[in-house]
């Protein structure tokens, strides 16, 4: 026989009220902790870099093209900022099509058994430490690109259009393009995973709407699935961009680390395609241990502060774009 509900022993009202309060306080504190952590990070980066920012000015440091820790002790973030943005966006561009293609295949076309394997490998690729990508880049990718792409292209150009040789740069294999390829292969799993999930979440009703109009499989994808999933796909792209902007080790290992830029319309805006380049995270990682003067150290921390700002702006822009593009107010 069942006990009547009224006779069951229940926690007292005071206990329940207190439990509720304690829970609210705990989750609030933890959430505020995250806010404090991110603000504190930005603040202390600013404090650490304040010496450099005061000496060169906020915009002066940002647009300064000289990085001379030895003689002039003059520092500017521009070559590193440009290097970071160029490598990241090029990598994003290079990775976009293969990543979305893989996501479409995994979400719609692949047989069930293969989907499991693909998903597992994609997640694995995202979990491989970047130094491992770096080693692969040094020993496999860079020599491969040098022999099969850089040298033939360089030799052909030397013969037919020597004028643009400076834009190609030294075809040693360690430089801008190799870094872009490494970065692209590192961020593909991020875009793929999020795009795949977004595509899988498209309601069956949307698919059927397109099929019932006489759409082929690809047309269903184009008409119903991709537009519906575009918010999620964009989220994956932005996450990948964030990863590319902050990626340090693998890039530092293959990019050549030289801040000599090419001028476009008199402004240093480019790196040679094959030749060495540099990024903000890689110069921080490489020079931190040998920064002996205060101003050098402060400049490196200031670089970190600017990188923080870049990430901040990119994320802000991202959440705005995702809001604009996502399919809102859906019925289930």
């Amino acid at each position: 026989m069942q006990a009547p509900l009224a006779r069951l022993k229940r926690p007292s009202a005071l206990y329940r009220m207190l439990g509720d309060r304690v829970f609210v306080v705990v989750v609030t504190l933890l959430a505020l902790g995250i806010v404090a952590l991110s603000l504190g990070l930005g603040y202390y980066l600013y404090l650490g870099g304040a010496q450099a920012i005061e000496r060169f000015g906020f915009w002066g440091f940002l647009t300064g093209t000289t990085w001379d820790p030895a003689l002039k002790e003059e520092f500017g973030a521009w070559p590193y900022l440009v290097g970071t943005l160029l490598t990241s966006f090029c990598a994003l561009f290079l990775s976009l099509f293969p990543a979305i293609a893989a996501a479409i295949y995994a979400a719609e076309y692949a047989p069930k058994w293969l989907v499991g394997i693909i998903n597992y490998l994609v997640d694995l690729m995202a979990a491989v430490p970047s130094v491992v990508y770096g080693i692969w880049g040094i020993f496999v990718l860079a020599p491969f690109l040098r022999e099969n792409l850089f040298l033939p292209a360089y030799l052909w150009t030397a013969e037919h259009a020597p004028g643009i040789l400076p834009y190609l740069g030294n075809p040693s294999g360690y430089g801008f393009f190799t870094a872009v390829v490494i970065l692209a292969s590192m961020i593909i799993p991020y875009t793929t995973a999020l795009a795949r999930d977004a595509i899988s979440l498209v309601p069956q009703a949307q698919r059927e709407a397109a099929y019932a109009l006489g759409a082929t499989r690809w047309e269903v994808m184009r008409l119903a699935m991709l537009p519906y999933a575009r918010g999620g796909i964009l989220a994956g792209v932005i996450l990948a961009l964030g990863r590319a902007l902050g990626e340090t080790m693998a890039v530092a290992m293959v990019i050549g680390n030289t801040n000599i830029m090419l001028k476009l319309l008199g402004i240093p805006l480019l790196y040679p395609l094959f030749g060495p380049a540099t990024t903000m995270p890689s110069v921080i990682a490489l020079e931190f241990k040998e920064a002996v003067t205060d101003i050098h150290l402060s400049s490196l921390i200031a670089l970190g502060f600017y990188l923080f700002l870049v990430a901040f702006v990119v994320n802000l822009l991202a959440s705005y774009l995702i809001n604009v593009f996502k399919v809102g107010g859906q019925r289930a």
């Binding site: 949307q206 019932a212 006489g214 399919v327 859906q330 019925r331």
Partner: peptide
């Protein structure tokens, strides 16, 4: 499916 169209339980316009 082009010759035999279909309307579903829940409205499903392309959003």
């Amino acid at each position: 499916r082009r010759r035999v169209g279909m309307v579903f339980q829940k409205p499903n316009p392309f959003p």
